[in-house]
Write a protein that binds this DNA or RNA. Structure first.
Lengths: 136, 136
DNA sequence: CTTGACTCCGTACCTATGTACGGAGATTAC
DNA sequence: GTAATCTCCGTACATAGGTACGGAGTCAAG
């Protein structure tokens, strides 16, 4: 099912606006699509998945430049370049995970505290988050 | 050691600019500081930690509005409000962790593949990331 | 007690990431 | 085949999150 999509269909399928697709193309995040009929862009499902990936990565705190770096990992580099870049990104991702796990644990503790009605003046969310700082 | 900080010292200690501190104050992310001497703001170490938390949360994909919500957990609400807000944030944080773990695993697989010199035309980073989509 | 660094405030400006506009041409639905 | 819809392009505008400016007041070292 090699569905050919116009820009409008792609945008709808990916949950973004047409202008966003054009913007990503201009920014180099999407490859130049074929334009057989009259100059209209023709996209494939791979482009839709790529946009999904971009949007997901954004919610994880990567900016478009970071994301371009991640997407470059799919390119035709030598394996050593890819390897090093992947390792670097891996490091960043692991750090993000650690920081989020600390926040998750603090939130969980807070929820439990509230459920045990052990409330004092204020719930110690910032304190518990902030004291992770030395570790992170 | 209840160190009193001027805005410049605070900014330096927190690794941001003076204007950023003023901006956070205007945005309600930092409380109004005391201003005993001649109107100069006087900050404490709690403010420095708060800024660190804001910066850390930003790299995890929270925007300033999200962060204000997290910081509100430290406030003097009733426990039930705090509980519900914390649960909601907990959900978001867990989702972020899951997505990052998927990316981490894909990157790890990629690094291993490169190390085994099992390279084909392109490393399958996008494919492996993108195919998580159903799960996430 | 002067000089240089710091702070005040409001406002203007900047970058990243989109969003919208508008007029001309292509396509599709009737 | 014509009307509605879609796409083209360049450019302008919008929003979040800062960052810089400028002129006046304050503080601290010599």
């Amino acid at each position: 099912m090699k569905s050919r999509l116009t820009i409008g269909k792609l945008a709808e399928a990916a949950g973004v606006g047409v202008e966003t697709v054009r913007f990503y193309q201009r920014s180099g995040l999407l490859p130049e699509p074929e334009r057989p009929l009259s100059g209209y862009r023709e996209y494939t499902d791979a482009d839709r998945r790529r946009i999904h990936f971009i949007k997901r990565a954004q919610t994880l705190g990567f900016n478009l430049e970071d994301i371009a770096g991640l997407l470059k990992l799919d390119g035709p580099q030598t394996c050593s370049v890819t390897h090093d870049l992947a390792l670097e990104k891996l490091h960043v991702v692991k750090e993000k995970i650690d920081a989020l796990v600390a926040i998750r644990d603090a939130l969980q503790q807070m929820v439990r505290q509230c459920e045990r009605k052990h409330r004092r003046g204020t719930c110690p969310i910032i304190q518990s988050l902030v004291q992770e700082e030395a570790k992170i």
